[in-house]
Design a protein around this nucleic acid. Structure first.
Lengths: 229, 229
DNA sequence: ACTGTTAATATACACTGTTTATTGATTCAT
DNA sequence: ATGAATCAATAAACAGTGTATATTAACAGT
């Protein structure tokens, strides 16, 4: 009468493993992740983990998928309070959310956008979907601008013919996207990522409290170039 | 009469260690670097390495400094054939050199711009100088544009007062730089790095042979925004 | 020729991911 | 209700890692 569920601690343990993995990652960084250390903290033997994850890489993959989900949720949520036709502020909001999430969950950010573990390469077939989903909000912001007829195609027009083909295969992951939208979204992502990546990795000076200002300047440059009135 | 130098194989071994380290990094990636594997390949015992490097992190630091040097050399060399007043082509050349170097020496790139080794954090006091030297060519390109009176300060003017202070402490590493130059150079670096970083980490579609075109478009956007005639 | 230095070794410790065989408890079918 | 089957967890072991210690061996300088 005490325990009724058939496998109560099974999925519990799976989640507990991931939870303590996140805990240790947050504390010591992703590459220091150790199955034995996780087991120790859970009062478990290390091989027991192999009942829930094929090997350490599989655990890392699961963590990466979780990180992408967390990232995608934060991207999506940033748009909730902005009017659908307030394109400039949507770009600002989703851009700021990118940087804020990276600073708040630095280790998740590094897990996704750095090389997290010795010899690990993310299996695209598993990580692809959650990865694609996480950048979809940005694509939708840009697509809405394009549909509203306010997307500047000046920069893309000259090279569009050559790149429609290159984007084609990528759409298997991101879904059907207009090439111009694809180009602009990629450019925005690239600029936003460049700033945040250099910042997170310590290649930029520490901006302190008003670190937003410089970043917002870059977001404004994006709007000046791609958002026509 | 055979050996005259006092410590002939000392620096030889130091270089050999780094050389085989690079060899293994190029083959298996930076995080798989193993002192024992290096020793094995050199027909040496692992502890012998400790005579040349305090520990594995010290070896990694040395490799990072070498990587920065290689990177800085490539940045500098890209400008050799471009006329000093051909500012547009200088931006193009140094930007393309950035991407080409990253593709040619991917592991060196990751060593610098990713989190290479479990628990490793680059000691700024050692890495700083070579790091600063490696981006100096970009700063000089931008500074030349500013001195020629062709640097557009529109984006920076509103936030300059707030950021002169933040840049101040950074100049201990990069040397004396005009704030506007600093801002524009950082922005260019950020954009260039964002593109290449996402590309190298596999978050961008593979662009194939004409991968330059999309990247050149981004370089042209930079010129349109910051290089006034 | 002796001494001091120092590079290299051998050995050992504590850690890692992973495999194997074994235990023990739970569930299912008869 | 009892026997069979399943499966999570363990114990033990293997191969690998970085690193500390003590020891050997070769060299340089006086």
């Amino acid at each position: 009468m005490l325990k009724r569920n058939s496998k109560p601690q099974l999925s519990n343990l799976q989640d507990s493993i991931k939870a303590t993995a996140w805990k240790q990652i947050a504390e010591y960084g992703a590459p220091a992740l150790s199955l034995r250390a996780i087991a120790r903290e859970l009062n478990i033997t290390a091989p027991a983990i192999y009942n829930y994850f094929a090997d350490r890489d599989a655990l890392v993959t699961a963590l990466i998928i979780d990180a992408f989900t967390s990232f995608g949720d934060s991207q999506q949520a940033s748009l909730d309070t902005i009017a659908a036709d307030d394109h400039a502020n949507r770009v600002n909001a989703i851009g700021l959310a990118y940087r804020n999430w990276a600073h708040r969950y630095t280790q998740r950010y590094l897990l996704i956008f750095s090389v997290p573990i010795p010899g690990y390469v993310a299996p695209l077939d598993q990580v692809g979907p959650s990865s694609a989903r996480s950048i979809r909000p940005l694509f939708e912001v840009v697509e809405a601008i394009r549909v509203a007829g306010r997307l500047n195609d000046e920069a893309y027009r000259p090279i569009q013919p050559a790149y429609e083909a290159a984007f084609e295969q990528w759409r298997a992951y991101v879904g059907p996207v207009h090439p111009l939208t694809h180009f602009v979204a990629m450019t925005i992502w690239s600029r936003v990522h460049g700033f945040v990546s250099l910042e997170i990795h310590g290649h930029f000076p520490p901006f302190g409290d008003n670190g937003d200002a410089l970043y917002l300047t870059e977001l404004h440059s994006v709007q000046r170039q791609f958002l026509k009135s």
